[in-house]
Amino acid sequence: RTSMTEEYRVPDGMVGLIIGRGGEQINKIQQDSGCKVQISPDSGGLPERSVSLTGAPESVQKAKMMLDDIVSR
């Protein structure tokens, strides 16, 4: 199975929601999608934060859908 890494961007203000209490939400995204999700520690003052998604292409797609779902709330 091919693994890929894709850079994705999320609004900086949503990072807390994506990570969740004690990392609960980000762990759920990783478990449900099978994709490794790494959020860059700092946006460098930019409105968006970089997130790197690593996994099989379908896992990366699923993680993106889950991120979009959180961001659109």
Results as ranks from 00 to 15, higher is better:
D12P: 15
R21A: 14
N27T: 13
G13T: 14
K36F: 04
N27G: 08
D42Y: 11
G44H: 10
G23T: 05
K36C: 07
S50T: 13
I26L: 13
Q61F: 09
K64S: 02
R73S: 15
S43C: 08
V71P: 02
S59K: 06
D69V: 07
S43P: 10
I39C: 07
S33M: 01
G34W: 00
I18R: 02
G34I: 00
S3W: 14
E24G: 06
S50G: 10
S33W: 00
S52M: 14
A63T: 01
G44F: 06
N27R: 14
E48Y: 15
G20M: 01
P11D: 08
G23E: 13
L46S: 13
M4H: 09
E48G: 11
M65F: 08
D42P: 13
I29C: 00
L17V: 09
D12C: 07
S50D: 05
L17G: 12
T2V: 13
G22N: 07
V71D: 03
T5W: 03
E24F: 12
R21C: 13
M14I: 13
P11E: 06
I70Y: 07
M4W: 07
L17Y: 07
S43N: 11
S40V: 14
V37W: 00
G20T: 02
R21D: 15
S33D: 00
M4S: 10
V37F: 01
V51P: 01
V37A: 04
S33Q: 00
T54D: 03
M14T: 06
S40W: 06
G16L: 03
E6C: 14
G55E: 00
D42R: 09
D42T: 13
L46E: 11
G20A: 04
D68R: 08
R73L: 13
Q31H: 13
P57F: 04
G13N: 15
G22P: 02
I39M: 10
T2Q: 03
Q25D: 12
G44T: 12
K64T: 03
E6P: 02
K64W: 01
S72I: 10
A56N: 05
D32H: 10
Y8D: 03
I18Q: 04
G55S: 00
N27Q: 12
M65R: 12
K64Y: 00
V60L: 06
P47M: 13
D32T: 10
V71A: 08
E58D: 12
E6Q: 14
E58F: 03
S43F: 04
S72Q: 14
L67G: 02
L67H: 02
I26V: 07
P11W: 01
I19G: 07
Q25F: 07
I26A: 04
V15T: 06
S43H: 09
S50I: 15
L67M: 11
Q25Y: 11
Q25P: 05
I26E: 01
Q31L: 09
G13S: 15
T5P: 02
G45I: 09
I29P: 01
D69C: 08
I19K: 13
K62C: 05
M4A: 01
V51W: 03
P41I: 12
I18A: 05
A63G: 03
Q31W: 04
D12S: 15
S33Y: 02
V37G: 00
V51N: 00
Q25N: 14
G22C: 06
T5N: 07
K64R: 12
E7F: 15
Q61I: 11
G45V: 09
M65I: 12
R9D: 07
S3F: 15
A56D: 12
S40K: 13
G55Q: 00
S52C: 14
D42E: 13
E24C: 10
V37R: 01
I39H: 02
T2N: 15
Q61K: 14
V51Q: 00
N27V: 08
I39G: 02
M14R: 04
V10Y: 06
V10R: 01
P57H: 06
I39T: 02
S59Y: 01
S59D: 13
E48H: 13
S52H: 14
M4P: 04
V60Y: 01
S52L: 15
S40M: 12
I18S: 04
S43W: 06
R21L: 14
M14S: 06
G45W: 04
G34L: 04
Q25M: 08
T5D: 04
S40R: 12
G34R: 05
T2L: 10
T54L: 05
P47N: 08
I26F: 03
G16Y: 11
D68T: 05
A56L: 09
Q31K: 08
S72H: 14
T5I: 11
G22F: 07
N27D: 12
D69P: 02
M4I: 09
G34M: 04
A63F: 00
G55R: 00
Y8S: 03
Q25W: 07
V60M: 05
R9C: 08
D32S: 11
Q31P: 00
R9N: 15
D32I: 08
S40T: 11
L53E: 00
E6N: 05
T54M: 07
I29F: 01
A56C: 15
T2H: 08
I19A: 09
G20E: 09
V37T: 03
L17P: 06
E58K: 11
D68C: 04
R1L: 10
I70F: 05
P41M: 10
R1Q: 14
S59V: 04
Q30C: 08
Q61G: 11
V60F: 01
K28M: 10
M65V: 13
M65N: 14
E6I: 10
P47H: 11
S3D: 15
G44I: 04
V51E: 01
S72W: 06
V51I: 15
L53Y: 00
V60N: 02
D42M: 07
E24L: 06
N27L: 10
S52W: 13
G55M: 00
G34A: 04
V51K: 01
T2G: 11
G13V: 04
R73P: 15
S3L: 15
N27M: 10
K62I: 08
P41C: 12
S59C: 11
L17D: 15
A56F: 04
E24I: 05
M66F: 04
A56K: 07
K28D: 03
G20N: 04
I70D: 02
R49D: 04
P57D: 02
Q25G: 13
I26D: 02
K36M: 12
R9Y: 14
T2C: 06
G23S: 07
I29W: 00
N27P: 03
K62M: 10
K64V: 03
G44W: 04
K36W: 05
C35R: 01
E58P: 05
K64D: 02
R73E: 13
M66G: 02
D12F: 07
D12L: 07
A63M: 00
R21Q: 12
I29V: 06
Q25H: 05
I70Q: 04
E6K: 12
M14Y: 06
R1W: 08
E6S: 12
D68M: 04
L67K: 02
L67E: 02
Q25L: 11
G45T: 10
D68I: 03
R49V: 08
S40H: 10
I19H: 07
V60P: 01
S40G: 11
Q30A: 10
R49T: 12
Q61S: 11
C35W: 00
S40N: 15
A56W: 05
Q31V: 06
M66I: 05
T54C: 06
M14L: 11
N27K: 14
I26R: 02
G22H: 06
Y8R: 03
Y8T: 06
L17H: 10
S50V: 13
G16C: 04
V10G: 03
E7H: 14
S40A: 14
G20V: 00
D42K: 12
G16A: 11
C35P: 02
S43M: 09
M65W: 06
G23K: 07
K36P: 00
L67F: 03
G23M: 08
A56I: 08
L17R: 12
L67Q: 02
Q38E: 15
Q61H: 06
